[in-house]
């Protein structure tokens, strides 16, 4: 088991109950769609995995380590095993594509030689060759999202979390991003993707977890029953 949730609830400080008694298990190598209406709790669930938020109740394990009880000093280690693709990209505007990707390696203390070797590799993986020296402001939305994916992948995470990676992209571009994520998953990385995009999910035949007002409404192993 890579991920385990036991009776997890999350109540924000303003009293909003975002997650209500969630229990679920995710195996190594799975590809998971996390669906649900806006406000259903998708982002909250995902944030608990890398401890951006802490649950109000319940236990969460990642690779058998308790995410909830771990010491503050151990959190960086947890996060280095998780790659995160943010819905709003979170690219640094004053850094080029290469620098944004290299940044993720620099901040975990990788040495210069490894960075020089690895960064072009992942840039090639996300098909951004030729854009290495562009700044985020000079890229399209799809290209920026691919930079975000490259950055999430560069440290070879065991788990890739993508919160609406196709959020504001057209269907064509979204399909390209999806192909990229499937490819990453085929190479062994577990992927959890939160999304609204039914048309992408429908054709994917992957496990779909649907949230409704903070509860799991359905957990469908092959994605067949999605309307």
């Amino acid at each position: 088991m890579l991920v385990q949730f036991y009776n997890v609830s999350k109540v924000y400080s303003n009293g909003v109950k975002a997650l209500d008694d969630i229990s679920l298990k995710i195996d190594k190598g799975e590809f998971i769609f996390l669906m649900g209406a806006s406000g259903a709790g998708k982002s909250t669930l995902v944030k608990l995995l890398f401890r951006e938020e802490l649950p109000t109740r319940g236990q969460i394990f990642l690779a058998s380590r308790s995410v909830v009880r771990m010491k503050r000093a151990e959190v960086p280690k947890l996060r280095r095993n998780v790659g995160i693709v943010f819905q709003d990209f979170k690219l640094l505007e004053n850094k080029t594509v290469s620098e944004n990707v290299a940044f993720a390696m620099e901040v975990v203390g990788a040495n210069t030689r490894d960075i020089k070797q690895r960064v072009p590799e992942v840039i090639k993986m996300v098909s951004l060759q030729g854009k290495e020296d562009s700044f985020p402001g000079e890229l399209s939305g799809g290209e920026q999202q691919r930079v975000g994916i490259a950055r999430a992948l560069v440290n070879r995470p065991v788990l890739l979390i993508a919160d609406e990676p196709t959020g504001n992209l057209d269907f064509e571009t979204s399909t390209g991003i999806m192909e990229l994520l499937y490819d990453i998953n085929r190479k062994g990385t577990t992927v959890i993707m939160a999304t609204h995009a039914r048309e992408l999910v429908k054709v994917a035949h992957k496990r779909i977890i649907t949230l409704e007002k903070g509860k799991i409404a359905s957990d469908n192993a092959d994605g067949e029953s999605i309307a």
């Binding site: 280690k77 947890l78 996060r79 280095r80 995160i84 979170k90 993720a104 901040v107």
Partner: peptide, 12 residues
């Protein structure tokens, strides 16, 4: 962002 992608407090 640095915190979310796993850098330590001292590194920052």
């Amino acid at each position: 962002l640095m915190k979310l992608i796993g850098s330590t407090d001292w590194f920052i």
